[in-house]
Nucleic acid binder design. Structure first.
Lengths: 360, 360
DNA sequence: AAACAGAGGGAATGCGCTTTCCCAATTCGT
DNA sequence: ACGAATTGGGAAAGCGCATTCCCTCTGTTT
């Protein structure tokens, strides 16, 4: 027993497929009451489920939203995905998921796949990169997006515009004020602190990381501090851990030389890296915040119970996902196309125990 | 400029659409070398992307895998989703995501939506429930799955079979030995411990929770312990937190009466609840493992840096997602249909600091 | 009462692709 | 060397639905 079709429903109801279609999907032309009822009953008794593929083909729109993330198991992306999912439900659409591992080449493939499925819109989360090795991939991704938009697709990208992408109609960027917020975090941390600052950043060229580093340095400068040293590492927990090991050695050496050495303050460009670094310090016998302060960025929900509570910058990740998805929604006719206020994303510096001055 | 079609490619290459189709998707009949090359070049120069909807309609298969989770931002589901995603890539399919919040009614809607999109297979993660309030939803979900399978769809469900679902062809269950593992955990914890055991469980009727509770009690019994008291709460962090508050009060009362009172050992049926409970104890001034032991279940990756390190049962969540997805893969012809060994999922009791006997 | 507008239903077309089915041009057998 | 088997390509028929166009039937206008 194959799935039943509209034609079968129509036959059972004794009407034409056209009529059946009209009643079943609420077209502008509503057939007579009695007929409508007959059709509905027929559909019910057959357990009719419209074939979305056929509908999509006929209407050339699929009711699909494509979401591109680096890794769905990363809580940062998972939180955004939740927002996207939520907004998709509002629009009565389904979300197609693609995880790319972060490379623009894979992202380009994902866009192509979404285009093939005629996804109505695409949300790209995850950091853009301008590393040399990604240059070709970026160009291809930009070209693919370009084509997608030209064919009527709508795109929202979280954070930074795709490198090299021209601002087309239907191309939206949800700006995240990484730089400004990192600056504010630096200012708050710098107040009344005299130790060295060290930044654990991601690979050079990752915009999210670079923006946060730049912002932090600016904040430091405004507070009268010299620039912090920057350690480059992988943009994940183990990157943070490795950098943390290096710093632990350094801290211990400093403490050995001078027991009253000022405390180091570590800023990891995201929470997951910060947790990794904290784990590394701990494994070396150091305690936070007694031996060093540490701060992260994102305020990942799952990590809030971590002790010592991590100072960080709260980002409304779920809202970001929601906003991005909404940005791709076609404006109802009459609504000004450019009137979209593109609600600004704001974050909030959240100081917790991991950067408290008082020793344990 | 609308997306180019096969027909356009064919025209440009000077061949028929049939031929173009044959070369572009590697059908059994491979056209001549020179023609193939011409077609490929034409496709390239037009930037042709096949319309997956049309392909799906013609082939009646969509290359889609539907994934149903309660909440994609929950690290448990996120980890499974990663495995699913990975296996989907192996099969060159894309994954459609549906988050349901846990209700069978929503799950039924998701199955219907997947069926409408003609998803090749569906993976259902998340706990089954046999609560009275879910009875109707379960029946509907079972019926929907039934229909889906009958129409050739393949389903894999993680953990428990859907309540009321008949074992159809194409219906797979990835068994997770929750009960056995919980028993082993109990046995390990009970060894040389004389304090009371308390279980923080999810709502009654949630199979995952109930199985773990039952297993734990059995393990306790085998070790010569009496059954543990069971506290019911929500199956998430805040459920664990609330239960933790109750227990904290109790622990403090006991300590007040008798300073050498034996230490309570808490088993929360999943890690997230355990973390919540631990947070509650801490907020009440209690320390783990000094004032109480606590253990969870799942071994969520993001939570591994939590201190005190949480004793738990390691579940290969990503593998589970992968296995479930693979189970829905149609066997290559010739391979025995039932020969699928349905690789068993195994877990591992992982004792860490949170249940160490020695006080801090 | 005749002419007209409008409503409601059906036939037919097309969305883009796959896949028989069919036909012409080969190659092979003996 | 001639018919048979095979190869390689095209024409055409759907896949399941939305939608345009057309027709008929009813209700309205002068």
């Amino acid at each position: 027993m194959a799935a039943s079709t509209l034609t079968e429903v129509a036959r059972l109801a004794g009407v034409s497929p056209a009529t059946a279609s009209r009643v079943l999907n609420g077209s502008a032309r509503t057939p007579g009451k009695d007929i409508a009822e007959r059709v509905r009953q027929a559909a019910d008794s057959l357990g009719y489920i419209p074939n979305a593929q056929a509908q999509g083909l006929a209407k050339s729109s699929s009711g699909l939203i494509g979401l591109i993330v680096h890794d769905i198991a990363d809580p940062y992306f998972a939180a955004i995905a939740r927002g996207v999912q939520d907004a998709a439900r509002e629009q009565r659409k389904m979300v197609l998921l693609a995880t790319t591992g972060g490379g623009p080449a894979e992202e380009k493939d994902a866009v192509a796949a979404f285009a093939a499925r005629r996804a109505d819109s695409i949300v790209i989360a995850g950091s853009r990169s301008c590393r040399a090795e990604d240059q070709e991939g970026n160009a291809q991704l930009a070209a693919e997006l370009d084509r997608y938009c030209r064919n009527g697709g709508r795109v929202a990208v979280v954070g930074h515009p795709v490198v090299g992408a021209t601002a087309l109609e239907g191309y939206h960027v949800i700006e995240v004020p990484n730089q400004e917020l990192a600056g504010r975090l630096a200012a708050d941390l710098a107040a009344g602190r005299d130790g060295d600052f060290v930044i654990i950043g991601g690979p050079e060229g990752l915009y999210t990381s670079d923006d946060r580093i730049r912002g932090f340095q600016e904040g430091l400068a405004r507070a009268g501090h010299g620039p912090a040293e920057v350690l480059r590492s992988a943009f994940n927990r183990s990157g943070g851990y490795e950098a943390g090991l290096q710093l632990a050695a350094r801290i211990k050496a400093a403490a050995a030389g001078d027991a009253a050495a000022p405390k180091m303050c570590i800023f990891a460009v995201n929470d997951v890296m910060a947790i990794g670094a904290a784990a590394a310090l701990r494994s070396e016998g150091l305690r936070i915040p007694r031996d060093a302060s540490i701060a992260g960025f994102d305020d990942i929900e799952t990590l809030r119970d971590f002790r010592p509570a991590l100072s960080t910058v709260r980002l409304p990740l779920e809202d970001i996902g929601r906003l991005a998805t909404r940005a791709t929604r076609p404006r109802p006719a009459g609504e000004d196309q450019d009137a979209a206020p593109a609600e600004a994303v704001t974050g909030e510096v959240t100081l917790r125990r991991s950067t408290e001055a008082a020793a344990v």
